[in-house]
């Protein structure tokens, strides 16, 4: 690292354990102190406090609340729909990223900019817009109704909302990897007689796969916690289309603070495990990429 090299050159390295590497730049104490204080105040203390409140509830009640059928079903719906949406996005997001990186066509830049719409559009706006489209009297919902099935107010509606929310994660993680791919490996594969499809599955896909998995994990993690875009289209029928975040809000509205805290903490726990998984995947991606 250039930073380490230049700072160690200015001063002889201190012996033994040092928290801060030698440097001539000022302001570390202020910046680091402020960062840590702000982080603790806004994020760590409130989150830690919630975990403590959940611990207050006691082990037996914790599991009684978490393992209640309605709660378990909400977990099943939240995680199941988020996984389904992430996998759908893996396919279509890859196609979108591929098209945006490799092909030139009119409107490409506009489409490239629009991919981030789900990041920029408030979730409640996305929620009511998707409901308007997929409700039985909406543009696509009416088609589905004619075909004999419902989209909005079923788990399928939740998947639709989560596909919308998660799509940019896949496209934006895969895009840079596709851009960096060497054309030479493809040429080598082609000159050795591979068909285009063989080149894709045997040469390109393995190179893209780590990024694709990271994108899927990010979209999945976001989908599990998503609230605003889902609650309008889900219909929120208990044990059918009820998601965990909605259950937390429902408990809060009934002044069942213990219930809300326990469910939220259980969800945080699972999210934390997923964060570890994502970190592991990213490290794995990098080590493979470095080769």
């Amino acid at each position: 690292m250039t930073a380490a090299a230049s700072t160690t050159a200015t001063k002889p390295a201190r012996r033994g354990w040092a928290f801060l590497a030698p440097t001539i730049l000022p302001g570390f104490g202020t910046a680091f102190g402020f960062t840590l204080a702000y982080l603790c105040l806004i994020v760590l203390i409130p989150l830690g406090h919630m975990a403590l409140r959940a611990a207050d509830v006691g082990w037996d009640r914790f599991w009684a609340i978490t393992l209640a059928p309605r709660v378990l079903h909400a977990f099943y719906i939240s995680f199941g729909c988020a996984l389904a949406a992430a996998l759908i996005n893996a396919v279509f997001g890859l196609v979108v990223a591929w098209v945006l990186v490799r092909y030139r066509f009119p409107g490409r830049r506009l489409i490239d900019a629009m991919v981030d719409l789900p990041f920029a559009l408030p979730t409640s706006v996305a929620g009511i817009a998707l409901t308007a489209i997929y409700a039985p009297n909406g543009w696509i919902g009416a088609l589905a109704k004619a075909a004999g099935f419902k989209i909005a107010f079923t788990p399928l509606g939740i998947v639709i909302a989560l596909v919308f929310v998660g799509m940019p994660f896949i496209v934006r993680t895969v895009e840079p990897v596709l851009q960096d791919l060497d054309a030479e490996v493809e040429e080598a594969a082609a000159s050795l007689g591979a068909t285009r499809w063989q080149t894709f599955t045997k040469v390109l896909l393995p190179a893209i796969l780590p990024a694709l998995i990271t994108g899927v994990a990010l979209a999945f993690a976001r989908g599990v916690g998503e609230y605003g875009s889902v609650i309008f289209i889900a219909g929120n029928i208990p044990a059918v289309s009820e998601i965990v975040p909605l259950l937390i809000v429902a408990r809060l509205e009934q002044y069942d603070y213990a219930g809300a805290t326990v469910i939220a903490t259980a969800m945080m726990g699972v999210s934390f495990l997923m964060l570890l998984g994502i970190n592991f995947l990213q490290r794995w991606t990098r080590s493979r990429h470095a080769r």
Binding site: L39, L47, E226, V244
Partner: peptide
């Protein structure tokens, strides 16, 4: 520290509100 700064991204928005209600 970097991982902790990213933490709010992986917390459900509902939980982000709940933590302050509990405080």
């Amino acid at each position: 520290l970097l991982a902790l700064i990213d933490l709010p991204f992986s917390v459900s928005p509902v939980i982000s509100g709940l933590v302050y209600v509990l405080l």
